[in-house]
Design a protein around this nucleic acid. Structure first.
Lengths: 345, 345
DNA sequence: TTGTAAGCGTTATCAA
DNA sequence: TTGATAACGCTTACAA
């Protein structure tokens, strides 16, 4: 009876070649303690020779573990996430996990779809940058006992981990810095209104104004999309029509994202005004290349790499079942003084 | 006989509730033509109410299709890839595919591991930025009939698709531009020696020199790691010790990657020389933010978004079985004139 | 149009 | 220490 090589080498086939049962092969491959050392060695050698690789779908189906982590982001285009993604991938690599990467494009519906995909794919955990802190989608995660870490927002639910970079502190620090440089009228370029980050950012801004008894002005608080283009276009509009900001002579601009700050740089090139002489600009995130802009962008650094590392750490620990307590980590951003803010004398 | 809800809702359970067989449910869910419209509607409604989501592991195991694409890159840290990743993700989203993202860190061994993981996970196809065009790893892909598109290098195998941005043309165009601006001594900051891209890039550089009868000088051809730091450090060394470049008074620098170019910008800040007055710099890729540097970086634009789109298009077509012919796409980069190259008079 | 039953490649349980 | 067998949740002949 000849046993020809099947299209794909599997445990059954190895078993046949080795003259043992499939279970023995399975045990050998998994380095099960219930396995004779000699047979194990023999089987491993055969597997190697046959270029065997496991079918992880079958394995996952049976064992309920996939060694896969889902990463669901809001905006893959934002360089803010690059460092985090890289950090996640590096960590996962060390422990032989893989990453499924998704983008929700700030849409609740897509986020929902992405979460369900993760569930369907049987990932062991997810790292989620939620569209909204109150998102119903987070409930889906909790109800399905999916291990998860939220980044970028403090979720409105108790039973979930998060690693948060405190946006409120970020804008507070930035605003205070502007005030100390004698800026009284600060234009706040915030993200979209419904974004949790925007709310936190506004809070810190108002808090700082209050501390220094500066009356906030609604006309100076703007909500726009987070992109270079959006920042540039919006600023050009303001530049041309000061009514948009209630005819207030603001001297500085605080941006929720470095992308917006770069947008203002772009506008400055096109319109010919000077940063920081005409307008001081301060960003947030400290994304790639901001230090090489001219002038180098003063911004608030977000510890993006740590966000990725901690998230994976938390996830892995909980997957291993070592630690079931929910982790709430609050990371502090720090001001990076560079050249885009002018001291008013 | 009561039928209690299991931990996870599955087809069997829905079948029980609906009073039909599992196969009927399966057909309904898959929108199989062999399914009564009424029952289908009923089943869909029940599935919805029960918050059913499919087990994609089981589905994939059985049907040999996972609606998953693997993306294996060399260097997740390089911003070059993010436009491509975003484009891939967007396209995949449209057709309900998911992406597994891996980083090989320029290591053949990790690349091999990543490819085998993809095989194990049963992905329907991969997009690979190979460590090396001759990589044995590509053979693994071919032997296993894994549908694949190489990006970033023309693989040394016939039976594989690729979408290539022609690095040779890129460096040729850039070098020619420098020459036309009267630069005779051009320092080439290439990537690591074993990298296919480096080889192609060198070729174009030499070709352009030849065309204008400029004798190439080995001392002006350098191989270094692709990062801002590496570019900066290396240039600082040269600056301090001109012997490294054979004491040649080069006037311009051509970089395989914008990262290296930014490294030189960094060095210029630290050492206090001027771009382009002391040295002209030209990069490659046209990555994020290069246009906002000061001076704006003259570079060669790589159509990164198209790389992603085309790759997915090819993969999907071949997965659907519509087109089995191997696609070899050669994309032309184009020069983007900005401010980092000076015309020598 | 529907149901029965086998099977995808693993692992887990139990008995030998 | 090993093997037989069932099961994970789904799809797919085939039969009804």
């Amino acid at each position: 009876m000849s046993s020809k090589k099947p299209k794909k080498v599997n445990i059954k086939y190895i078993a046949k070649i080795a003259g043992v049962s499939p279970s023995t092969v399975s045990r050998a491959l998994r380095d099960d303690p219930n396995a004779n050392k000699e047979t194990k060695k023999r089987i491993l050698k055969i597997a190697e020779e046959l270029d065997y690789y496991p079918n992880l779908l079958a394995k996952g189906l049976r064992s309920k573990r996939t060694k896969t982590i889902g990463v669901i982001l809001n905006d893959l285009k934002n360089p803010l996430y690059y460092d985090t993604i890289k950090a996640i991938e590096d960590k996962l690599n060390e422990v032989d996990y893989t990453m499924i990467l998704c983008d929700s494009n700030y849409s609740q519906e897509m986020e929902r779809k992405n979460i369900i995909t993760m569930l369907s794919k049987g990932v062991d955990g997810v790292i989620l940058s939620p569209v909204n802190a109150k998102s119903e989608n987070i409930k889906i995660i909790i109800e399905n006992n999916l291990k998860a870490v939220c980044i970028d927002a403090v979720p409105n639910y108790k039973n979930i981990n998060y690693v948060y970079v405190n946006h409120e502190i970020a804008s507070f620090v930035a605003t205070e810095y502007l005030i100390k440089n004698k800026h009284q009228h600060i234009l706040l370029l915030n993200g979209p209104y419904q974004l949790s980050s925007s709310k936190a950012f506004l809070k810190g801004y108002l808090k700082a104004l209050k501390k220094y008894s500066i009356k906030p002005n609604r006309a100076l608080i703007k909500y726009i999309d987070l992109s270079i283009e959006s920042g540039c276009e919006f600023f050009k509009k303001i530049y041309q029509d000061r009514k948009i900001v209630g005819n207030i002579n603001f001297t500085s601009i605080l941006c929720l994202s470095d992308l917006l700050a770069i947008g203002i740089y772009k506008a400055s090139h096109e319109l010919g005004f000077s940063i920081p002489n005409n307008y001081s600009v301060i960003g947030y995130d400290n994304i790639f290349a901001t230090e090489y802009l001219s002038p180098p962008l003063t911004t608030v650094h977000a510890p993006k790499i740590r966000v990725g590392k901690y998230s994976v750490d938390i996830l892995l620990e909980q997957i291993e079942g070592k630690d079931t307590e929910f982790k709430k980590i609050d990371l502090e951003p720090r001001l990076v003084e560079r050249g885009s803010v002018k001291k008013i004398s």
